[in-house]
Design a protein around this nucleic acid. Structure first.
Lengths: 141, 141
DNA sequence: TCTAAACTTGACCATTTTAGTCAGGTATGT
DNA sequence: ACATACCTGACTAAAATGGTCAAGTTTAGA
């Protein structure tokens, strides 16, 4: 049960981005340097964040990324969903009609894992980017 | 962020075991058949559960495993710890003095992941095997 | 207009983890 | 003695992870 780098990096990068003003775009290069995340890897992550309308990109010199919405409207759920960081406690997929062990019934502890999933997701649904930056905002020099 | 089979199987197997009386030992073969888990894999798992004093083994014909303690005293935490299913949200280890990104400070979202870890662990600490078997006990035929 | 900064895309890959299998044992009730 | 069941360690195929690399396109500013 562990969080992957992709999910962690996505949140770290967005917090970094949000801490700087969201009028001037922030380049991935800056984020990469400040947070110690590989630039190439960040590009993969931001491509997903963009597709999911969490950030907007501005190309060219002095370009970069800015948030698409208010930090208060970006929940961890949204970020994780965007980068495919899913909370998966059971192997079985809801679309598959068969149960959890390949048997016809759901496994003996199915409800437990469902409950766990809900428990974890509620944490993510209640945390927004705004909560994470607090009053730690900085202005780009 | 997903639960591994080892953790899931351990809990499933123990719930299965607990649902039958804990005086007559239950063989892994039975659990394997009922829960659809490979016998060889179960043996690996139970060897860990035994080392962590969650189950006792009885060898020979009619042998098997029984719980070492009352189902109420076996928390999910204990089970997961036994089979190395850890909740890990940050890469950095507490023993390593350096921060999360190989930098000297802890990463910008460190506290968040700590909070998440606590949130998840509290779920595991408050669930016992007893909670999972409820009044679903069965008697071996 | 030229150039460098920055985004964009897709392929590729080494390492680690997962989820087991396999092949031998040893102990014990009947 | 023999079948049942525990016990142990080595091995491995497949997937996931955590990236790198290469080759673009776009645009601001000199």
């Amino acid at each position: 049960m562990k969080l992957t780098s992709k999910g962690r990096y996505a949140v770290m990068a967005l917090v970094d981005l949000a801490r700087f003003d969201n009028i001037n775009p922030v380049s991935l290069r800056d984020i990469s340097l400040r947070q110690g995340i590989s630039l190439d890897y960040l590009e993969q992550i931001f491509s997903k964040l963009k597709r999911n309308n969490i950030v907007k990109s501005i190309r060219g010199t002095q370009g970069g990324y800015i948030l698409s919405k208010n930090p208060n409207d970006i929940k961890l759920t949204n970020i994780f969903y965007a980068v495919d960081e899913k909370v998966k406690t059971v192997k079985c997929n809801k679309e598959i009609k068969r149960g959890c062990n390949g048997k016809s019934t759901k496994c003996i502890t199915h409800d437990l894992w469902d409950e766990l999933e809900t428990h974890i997701n509620s944490f993510f649904e209640n945390k927004s980017l705004e909560d994470l930056i607090n009053n730690k905002k900085e202005t780009r020099v």
